[in-house]
Design a protein around this nucleic acid. Structure first.
Lengths: 251, 251
DNA sequence: CGGTGTCTTGAATACCATCAAGTCTTGTGG
DNA sequence: CCACAAGACTTGATGGTATTCAAGACACCG
């Protein structure tokens, strides 16, 4: 899951406003291409799409019902989650601004997971066929898309290794460092020592690392005791980056 | 990892023979398209490629050195493995005949894992650029390729769930059932009760399920005691499919 | 024939889950 | 604005699953 395709906004958008979205989409594509110096500006015609804003904890995209729409996150955090019949959950990937839930959504309509908002989330739904056609028409966009796909797969494989072969401390440290990485590419990390918005509840961390919320609490407390990180007011500060990396890499 | 792109052979091939490979590749593509009734026969020009045969346990494709080649398995079993610095290993996917190590190899040159032969393996290496160009030139092939990609990602996400949220028994039962599924699509499963070649050592199962060989041994013994499966002479028989599924699905 | 790889089994241990109780925060309706 | 409920987090006690350690049986190969 989780493909960053650079459909980000530079300015706030009137939520749900169709005109606003259309403008923004054009903007976003230009921003995207500008950042990459690949696509000349204004080559892209706006796609049909619909903007939405949902509060935290709402389900954005549920397996069975949505067929032809591909959601792209504009702002906020979300998660792609596989639900098991006993109520336990596995977060397959976190979705940050600019992410499509999964690159596979462009091709496949049978999903095995749902997308849930963690914070308030603004997102846009694209028509799958149109989005696909557009990507294949513009090489620069396709390039971006395939690179998003490679990133997504790399992260998935990394997660497999983490869940299969690493301890609780390592998993949690790596989760934090991965988020740090992704967020700093989005320019969402502030200052020195590094600090960023951290809307995850401990149960989110548990669902992502294959642990229980109780154990996550214990590990995070230990991290704090050791002066590695600090979490307060939904914000995470990395106090000792080398130390945290040491915990994460160990082995 | 692991993309089945239908580059299989119908007949044995003189190992390493360039002419043989070229013929076989044409054959293979036709077989592939015939199986799908999508590509008209003979539309495809043969690609440059090289055939290889390696014994079990040999490394086929190592991260750092191979840049522009994409290996495709012709016969035998292989595994894509992530090595950790303490010597522990995680198998990210098993590669069966017709599988490309990963669809991402078409686009990305920086690999984080190696491909190892489990049995003797025949495989072919394609030039990445040429293979890519060919896929994008022929819509039917591209279609096949994207579907391989979706399968690959689906399996990766399933593995994430298994490693994150399932017990040892469940993981091992699911591994067996997944292999049964894939092998039966390749027509490599015989008879009733279902039975197939099973070259995996217990340490392979351990590396794939995130367990230790010792514990794999105990679980398999229990499966046998309960009359679920039987393994002998590198062949696995599923004696009680519903029972095994019950163990696998549980929850 | 020794060496290596594979598998099995038992005992001790470690890591993480489960259970439980309590604090604190957040949100909601009266 | 307060009261109450629900959610979030913490901490300690206990237990289970899987690991680690160890030793031995067996097959295969050079």
């Amino acid at each position: 899951m989780n493909a960053h395709i650079g459909l980000r906004e530079t300015e706030p958008l009137v939520a749900g406003s169709r005109a606003g979205c259309a403008i923004c989409l054009g903007l976003a594509f230009n921003v995207c291409s500008a950042a990459n110096a690949a696509t000349p500006p204004n080559v892209l015609t706006p796609l049909r799409q619909s903007g939405h804003t949902v509060p935290a904890r709402r389900i954005i995209w549920r397996g069975p019902d949505m067929h032809d729409v591909v959601p792209v996150i504009c702002s906020g955090w979300a998660a792609a989650i596989v639900m098991l019949s006993d109520g336990s959950r596995q977060i397959v990937s976190f979705l940050l601004p600019g992410d499509m839930a999964s690159t596979t959504m462009l091709f496949d309509a049978k999903p095995y997971c749902q997308v849930e908002a963690i914070t308030e989330v603004r997102y846009r739904s694209f028509n799958r066929g149109e989005l696909k056609a557009m990507l294949f028409k513009h090489p620069a966009l396709l390039e971006r898309f395939t690179s998003a796909w490679v990133d997504e797969k790399t992260r998935a494989d990394q997660l497999i290794v983490d869940l299969g072969r690493r301890t609780a401390d390592e998993r949690i440290a790596r989760l934090i460092l991965n988020l740090l990485d992704r967020l700093s590419k989005l320019d969402l990390v502030r200052g020195e020592p590094a600090e960023f918005d951290f809307p995850l509840r401990q149960h989110h961390i548990a669902d992502a690392t294959g642990l229980t919320p109780v154990h996550v609490s214990k590990v995070l407390s230990e991290f704090r005791r050791n002066g590695l990180i600090n979490i307060s007011e939904r914000s995470l500060t990395i106090l000792d980056a080398p130390g945290l990396r040491r915990v994460a890499q160990m082995r």
